[in-house]
Write a protein that binds this DNA or RNA. Structure first.
Lengths: 291, 291
DNA sequence: ACACGTTACGGCAACCGTAAGGATT
DNA sequence: AATCCTTACGGTTGCCGTAACGTGT
């Protein structure tokens, strides 16, 4: 079996580029690092670092081993951390975590007294964290149905076409599809499935959509649209306040209804763990929110 | 730092349900298992298994730790295995691995003398294996653009509508969309993106598609179609032989061209490792195949 | 009495730090 | 000579197996 202390020494040597630096980083003597690395190399029957006069670099095999080493150390640290704090950790894609999930978490705290940690990142990154058990459950805009997980429908939110108050469309309730196709669209975060929904809804016409640029986040998109830089399509929950206050206007396309189903995903091996199950049960409750 | 030998002992106890069984499984004495588990529990400051009269079960914290333990042991074993064999490991979704990749692997063996291991599984499962570094690169029908990976277009294959030789459509070159919409479709493996492509291409009409049943694999779909159980849509490469021999016929829908782009995906931290890079370079070569 | 896990004890290997030794520039 | 890694040596710790010891049935 590998010794994780030695693996850690290997990582430190690669990061620091020297045995001395690695020893300092780890707070051990330099010979300990040398020893540990040698043990590891013996165990693996492979030279892992090339000792050079001025600095060390991973060898060929070292480069192959490097990602494993990182994952092993990170995983073990996550494991102990996860056991120390018994807080549930919930992941959510940016839009969901920032705009949609908050009132539900509030309700969870009020009714069940549970206050989970919330991890917000891009949709695919959250899927990765779920796979690594960095989080216990995820609320996502898009899920690929990979095995080992249970995905349940959470809520369905409408997608709105938003424009600035001084945009010509702001005075209309409805536009037709052709107008939308001729207007450059500002895109937000990638990998959230909005593009797929548009393609499904528009069919062949989707290829004529003009995506002028990617802004990376919904908040940036909202500011850009408000500043008159174009129009965009976002989840209703993300612009409720702006529309209520008149900072943004929404318009519909005749005969087009866009909506996105959001998912709650839990690994199968955590679904039996009672606090996870309990939390999921609370958050999935169809009970209406006061907001 | 965690001791992987102890983690392994924990896993064995949980699997076997007893310390004795675990000791047998691991080929050590029973007290060693007891000791190791105690060390682990001390390290984690958590009781991991509940010692019962007739068998042991993981405690609450044990259940939380369990997936970490499995991942740690599996990852460490993969790491040593990966260093022992210097064979590249290529993953591919079923269709790609079975039908499309083979001639390219042949060419790779002939020109570069490289014979990689091939791992075939469902598309999302391959994505997971890639994330875990179980494979070095993947050829996929669908990729979600998650961070940390480089995805390059590999080839584009047409999607064909296939029917049995005695099907009424077999005598026609072309049908119209309405006919397709009224015909039940046999679906193959899930998560391969074919559904998404159909939705994009057909737009709102996609909702009228009749998917009669899921058969799980393309090979099953081909047999079912040949037996007259319905029609289906598959990648051209998967039915080239059957069409050439007349066991299946393909028809087109007027004005509809369906195709699927396949991807070659490599983790960023492996792309610099020379044999991986070399292999990818060879397989991505646009050079025409003799077949 | 039996089955099972725990604890005590001794041997052995692993680990660590100090310090001396080599190699390269 | 200076720098960096390796190796030798001794003390300490951790790990393992044998065997004795609780504890429930």
């Amino acid at each position: 079996m590998l010794n994780l202390t030695h693996v850690r020494a290997f990582l430190a040597v690669v990061e620091e580029g020297s045995f001395h630096g690695a020893a300092d980083q780890l707070g051990v003597s330099q010979s300990t690092v040398s020893h540990g690395l040698k043990r590891l190399e013996d165990m693996l029957a492979s030279d892992l670092v090339i000792r050079h006069r001025d600095g060390c670099v991973p060898s060929h095999k070292g480069e192959i081993f490097l990602p494993f080493a990182r994952s092993l150390v990170a995983l073990s640290e996550r494991a102990v951390a996860r056991l120390q704090s018994d807080r549930i950790r919930i992941g959510a894609s940016s839009n969901v975590g920032i705009y949609l999930l908050q009132p539900h978490l509030r309700r969870l705290a009020d009714t069940a007294g549970v206050q989970p940690d919330l991890v917000i990142a891009a949709n695919p990154a959250i899927a990765t964290k779920l796979e690594n058990r960095e989080i216990d459950m995820a609320f996502l805009e898009w899920w690929d149905g990979r095995p080992g997980f249970e995905a349940r429908r959470w809520i369905t939110d409408r997608l709105l076409i938003i424009v600035a108050p001084d945009h010509p469309w702001a005075r209309r309730n409805e536009i037709d599809l052709e107008m939308l196709l001729q207007q450059p669209l500002l895109a937000g975060e990638k990998g959230t499935g909005t593009g797929t929904i548009l393609k499904e809804a528009l069919g062949t016409a989707a290829s004529r959509l003009l995506v002028s640029r990617n802004l990376g986040s919904t908040e940036a998109v909202k500011r850009a649209v408000a500043a008159g830089m174009g129009v965009s399509i976002v989840m209703e929950g993300a612009v409720r306040d702006e529309i209520a206050s008149g900072r943004l206007y929404s318009v519909s396309v005749a005969g087009l209804r866009l909506e996105k189903t959001l998912w709650c995903v839990v690994p199968h091996d955590l679904i039996t763990v009672s606090p996870t199950l309990e939390t999921m049960r609370h958050l999935l409750e169809p009970q209406a929110l006061s907001s």
